[in-house]
Simulated assay, not measured.
Amino acid sequence: MEGMRMLVVIEFAFDIGDDDWKKFHSFFIGMDRRCKIIIISRLQSLARFGSVKPIFLSVLSYDELRYLFKTLAFGSVDPAQHPLSVQVADEFAKVLHGMPGALVAKNTFVDVLRRNLSVQYWHCVLDKRKRMVKRNLSMYGGHPSMLIGEGHPVDITDFSLHPLSMTRHTINGSTKKELPCLTFGELIADPSARPKQDFVLVSWESRIPPHNSFAHFVTSHAQNTHEGGALSGRKRRGVSI
């Protein structure tokens, strides 16, 4: 190892404190002052740790996101065979475009939609997504993507048909053994499949190495929920999609 330089690439899913960064940075620089560190993140606030001008990747245009969404959602199926579902896909692209974490959200939902190409199913998933956004704007005053990025809880009652909140979570070996795990697609397809205790919800897992998972810690808040808590004020239907 003598004479070799070290390159460290770090991906931050959320912001960290300045003191924590200084300790981390000092550790590697102490090993070799020629060590280089590259920070990757969706959070522009982390640019304060850099010593050079940051490089910002441009956001996909609506047309680019719409094309990518439909390509992944339909897979090998010809979209022309499902013209009504194409319209729903376009609406999904409008909902996701410009929001924080749009690419992760896109992968999350195309993974769900590929399971069932029925236009009724797609409409139902889209409707639940819209209701979930409205609910969190009403309860917490922020978009779910923004809330998750800042470490705040997000209400996912509209997807689970049961009062649940999720916060960001890092999966490791011990966690997988301690808590039951469920994918977002499994929860959407069958809300009754949710574990009765706290669990880890995997919104999406990369198909290529190192197969990074985007996971959240989910807990019930049924004890804090009252009948007037729903945005619509109407009785919820216990029908899954």
Score class of each variant (00 low, 15 high):
residue 2 E to K: 14
residue 3 G to K: 10
residue 6 M to P: 00
residue 8 V to P: 00
residue 12 F to T: 04
residue 13 A to L: 14
residue 19 D to E: 06
residue 20 D to T: 12
residue 22 K to F: 08
residue 26 S to L: 11
residue 26 S to I: 02
residue 28 F to T: 13
residue 30 G to D: 07
residue 33 R to W: 15
residue 34 R to G: 15
residue 35 C to F: 06
residue 37 I to T: 07
residue 38 I to D: 05
residue 40 I to E: 03
residue 40 I to L: 15
residue 44 Q to A: 05
residue 45 S to Y: 01
residue 45 S to H: 00
residue 46 L to Q: 01
residue 46 L to A: 06
residue 47 A to N: 05
residue 48 R to M: 10
residue 50 G to K: 08
residue 58 S to Q: 15
residue 58 S to G: 01
residue 59 V to Q: 06
residue 62 Y to E: 09
residue 65 L to T: 06
residue 69 F to R: 01
residue 74 F to C: 06
residue 75 G to H: 01
residue 76 S to K: 13
residue 79 P to H: 01
residue 80 A to D: 14
residue 81 Q to A: 14
residue 86 V to Y: 03
residue 86 V to C: 08
residue 89 A to H: 09
residue 91 E to I: 09
residue 97 H to G: 01
residue 99 M to D: 08
residue 100 P to G: 03
residue 101 G to A: 08
residue 102 A to T: 03
residue 104 V to P: 03
residue 105 A to P: 01
residue 108 T to G: 02
residue 109 F to P: 02
residue 112 V to I: 05
residue 118 S to C: 14
residue 119 V to Y: 06
residue 121 Y to G: 11
residue 123 H to K: 10
residue 129 R to G: 05
residue 135 R to E: 12
residue 139 M to Y: 02
residue 140 Y to E: 04
residue 140 Y to M: 11
residue 143 H to G: 12
residue 143 H to Y: 11
residue 144 P to Y: 06
residue 146 M to R: 04
residue 147 L to S: 06
residue 147 L to T: 07
residue 150 E to A: 06
residue 151 G to M: 03
residue 151 G to V: 13
residue 158 D to N: 08
residue 161 L to R: 08
residue 161 L to W: 01
residue 163 P to A: 07
residue 164 L to A: 02
residue 164 L to I: 02
residue 166 M to E: 05
residue 167 T to Q: 02
residue 173 G to M: 14
residue 173 G to V: 14
residue 174 S to C: 04
residue 174 S to H: 00
residue 176 K to Y: 10
residue 179 L to M: 10
residue 180 P to R: 11
residue 181 C to R: 13
residue 182 L to V: 15
residue 185 G to Q: 11
residue 185 G to Y: 12
residue 186 E to T: 15
residue 191 P to H: 10
residue 192 S to F: 10
residue 195 P to E: 12
residue 196 K to V: 07
residue 196 K to G: 03
residue 199 F to P: 01
residue 199 F to N: 07
residue 201 L to V: 08
residue 205 E to Y: 08
residue 210 P to S: 10
residue 211 H to R: 07
residue 212 N to Y: 10
residue 224 N to E: 10
residue 228 G to N: 12
residue 229 G to F: 04
residue 232 S to Q: 06
residue 233 G to N: 11
residue 234 R to M: 14
residue 234 R to S: 10
residue 235 K to D: 13
residue 235 K to G: 00
residue 236 R to I: 12
residue 238 G to W: 14
residue 238 G to H: 05
residue 238 G to R: 13
residue 239 V to E: 09
